[in-house]
Design a protein around this nucleic acid. Sequence first.
DNA 1: ACCTGAACACCGTTCAAGT
DNA 2: ACCTGAACACCGTTCAAGT
Lengths: 209, 209
Amino acid sequence: MAAPPEPDPAPARTAPRERPLRADARRNYERLLAEARTAFAQAGTEASLEDIARRAGVGIGTLYRHFPDRYALMEAVFAAGIAALCAEAEQLSADPALEASEALAGWLGSYVAYATTYGGLSGALAEQGRMTSCHDILSGAAALLLVPAQRAGSVRAAASPHDVLLLTTAVAWAAERLPEGDEEGRGRLLGLVLDGLRTGHRPPPGRPG
Amino acid sequence: MAAPPEPDPAPARTAPRERPLRADARRNYERLLAEARTAFAQAGTEASLEDIARRAGVGIGTLYRHFPDRYALMEAVFAAGIAALCAEAEQLSADPALEASEALAGWLGSYVAYATTYGGLSGALAEQGRMTSCHDILSGAAALLLVPAQRAGSVRAAASPHDVLLLTTAVAWAAERLPEGDEEGRGRLLGLVLDGLRTGHRPPPGRPG
DNA sequence: ACCTGAACACCGTTCAAGT
DNA sequence: ACCTGAACACCGTTCAAGT
């Protein structure tokens, strides 16, 4: 509002590519990303790459030029969602009305909800050495909420951020495999895991930590 | 040892096929099964079916004649292991020295151990409408241990056998994806889930139910 | 009755040739 | 600098022809 317009806006750090692309290349990149998002939402992350290239109106070689493998394409498609989860974690951790374990529980719920949006996403997120940029961001977000909850004594100290993230990813994976029509199942499964994390001890909320 | 040879052995109920096969067909069936077990153990349940047929010394058509799809082959390969898990569940449930929730915890540990023996097995076990014979057996075994633990009050009544089985399968899935060399991870992850199942209430052992 | 393997319809990935 | 699509090396699955 009162701030003057920035005279020299920093080059976007979240830009998908460092150097500028030729106009047609950038257009192809964006089209591939859009078609990949649609295809992943429809057919899961195992959707045919040839289909995606065809629908984007480019040759398969162009897809491979921009995205060396399926995981590069997935990282680009899911980057925005992961960033949003990260932002939510920061908001939750800064909310003084929320007990730390509640903030953690809320975020893990959002994480499961997102990971079940695209079929196969939970599987990709659990793979070792893939989607590493997503892993780094998500680990940071998980730690941001887990550590205060453990300091407050409401979540057992033995649980590492990695274990919690992996187990919650496994809940998303399981939720994808619940019988058709079981809408509450996701919450039930996550609830069991959250109960396993809690110590049972509830410090009074609003206590300065 | 002392038992006389059975005069009229009952026709094996667990026989993989109802009617007798031609000698060469039976030999091919057994070879395919053996090679599939080896291949699944080595390369996971996604191992190439053509490889399995080739190593068994038969044409690919013969594999499909005996096993209409990959899941039929998997069910045949894993039938013995699933049956052993079922037998263990019965032993545990009949053990008077074991508190009900401990028996459940022990069996779920064995289940996770088995499901992580073959790469991809946990994924196959969680698929809807596949491996149904395995599902039926495992559901029965899980209920056999879960219900008494719930009656005793040491495991929360809200957890259904299906949820418990699915969540434990998810633990096995997650354990497959732990970083290399993390040998205790399987136990840690299962421990968190088991803590979520427990109520915290411990009735004195040996109390007549 | 059972087996064989060529044939078919798909994949992902690479790379020589174009613009 | 970037794009194209044929070519390659794989899949799973079927089925006409053999024994």
